[in-house]
Computed example of a mutant assay.
Amino acid sequence: MQMRGGSSKGAYFLAADLPADPAERDDLLLRIMGSPDERQIDGLGGGHPLTSKVAVVGPSESPGADVDYLFLQVVPDRPIVTDAQTCGNLLAGVGPFAIERGLVAPAGETTTVRIRIMNPTVSLAEATVRTPAGQVQYDGDTVMAGTPFPAAPIDLAFPGGDAPLFPTGQVVDFFAGVEATAVDAGMPVVLVRAGDLGLAGDEEPAVLEADEALRAKVEALRVEAGRKMGLGDVRDTTVPKVSIISAPRHGGTVTTRTFIPHRVHAAIGVLGAVSVAAALRARGEANNRLVRVEHPSGFFDAYVQLEGVGPKARLVRSTVVRTARKLSDGLVWPRTGKATG
């Protein structure tokens, strides 16, 4: 099934329909999505990280979850499939997909699907899906920045955990000579002030992507941050993200431009926004639980509850509202041969 989840788009599969061996699975997904090819012209991918995503969903053996969700990022122009991070945008489609595939039975006007996220950074989430008359409702009036059309709301809630909000043990670090904050509230993110990179902070994504010196600087601090955050060598991974922050322009809490990690997001990821919001609250720069994160195509509201302040702060719970829509449902014909051949 192809779905738009949040401000991303991806292919959703039942786990039982894919090879159990990770190497065989990844090779198949490269051929299905059309990688390696920057256009992905021979597959389902859209030639951009935001449209080259896969969700693998199956029944969960955990008593606290209904389904397991594994997110896989298929790199468009390289033969790489990575599970190093999760995706909160594609997560918005997991609840509807689970109900459509019969993994979870509709429970009334709304159905809550308990999801165990199998990627390293988040353990559990709850998605509340509108299911009037026992059917997933996709049409609605909720307009979400980063998508052009309204749809039915899907409420996503993330419980906190015992993991530290600041993996380095400090609120402020220096990476590649730049002051930054390394945070993980579901997505490893490095916050850097725009002025420290010689930026205004409201540049268009294409302008930032075209600045080779900036991209090299961002990558250098990202690689150093990754090591200090305990992520190892991150040169070939998609985490941490780097969010460039500056003063709000439209009444929000902060303006962001986010490298994901080499392209610049047209909006901001769900858990990336939660991490930004949590860092601002722990740093004392956001006094309310509702943090409005401005991004290139609008804003993202994240409700964040913390316990404690400063380097000992811990995430208790976060909630967001997303939308999703089923685009197509059927068979896909992967190209033959090996993806790396």
Results as ranks from 00 to 15, higher is better:
317 R>C: 09
330 G>A: 09
135 Q>S: 13
25 R>H: 03
266 A>M: 11
187 M>E: 06
249 R>C: 14
299 F>R: 13
303 Y>K: 15
204 E>M: 05
150 P>W: 07
226 G>T: 02
207 V>C: 02
184 D>P: 06
132 P>T: 09
335 R>P: 13
6 G>S: 13
300 F>K: 15
73 Q>Y: 00
208 L>M: 03
275 S>I: 09
307 E>D: 15
265 H>Q: 10
244 I>H: 08
88 G>V: 07
139 D>E: 15
175 F>W: 03
39 R>T: 15
60 S>F: 02
269 G>Q: 02
115 I>S: 02
88 G>N: 10
332 V>E: 06
111 T>V: 04
145 A>K: 05
303 Y>E: 14
336 T>Y: 12
199 L>F: 00
289 R>A: 10
162 D>H: 11
243 S>D: 03
143 V>D: 12
305 Q>K: 13
148 P>F: 07
257 R>N: 04
232 G>L: 04
245 I>E: 09
229 M>C: 03
274 V>M: 08
253 T>C: 09
177 G>N: 08
261 P>R: 10
336 T>H: 12
48 H>T: 10
139 D>S: 11
169 G>D: 08
97 F>I: 06
183 V>R: 00
304 V>K: 08
274 V>E: 01
174 F>Q: 15
19 P>F: 02
4 R>I: 07
294 E>H: 11
220 A>E: 03
30 L>H: 04
189 V>A: 03
54 V>W: 03
115 I>E: 00
173 D>E: 15
199 L>S: 01
312 K>H: 14
289 R>W: 03
279 A>L: 07
130 R>N: 08
137 Q>L: 14
329 D>S: 14
219 E>N: 12
184 D>A: 09
189 V>Y: 06
313 A>W: 09
11 A>D: 07
134 G>H: 02
227 R>I: 11
230 G>F: 07
153 P>T: 04
74 V>W: 02
48 H>C: 02
305 Q>N: 13
64 G>Q: 12
102 G>V: 01
311 P>C: 11
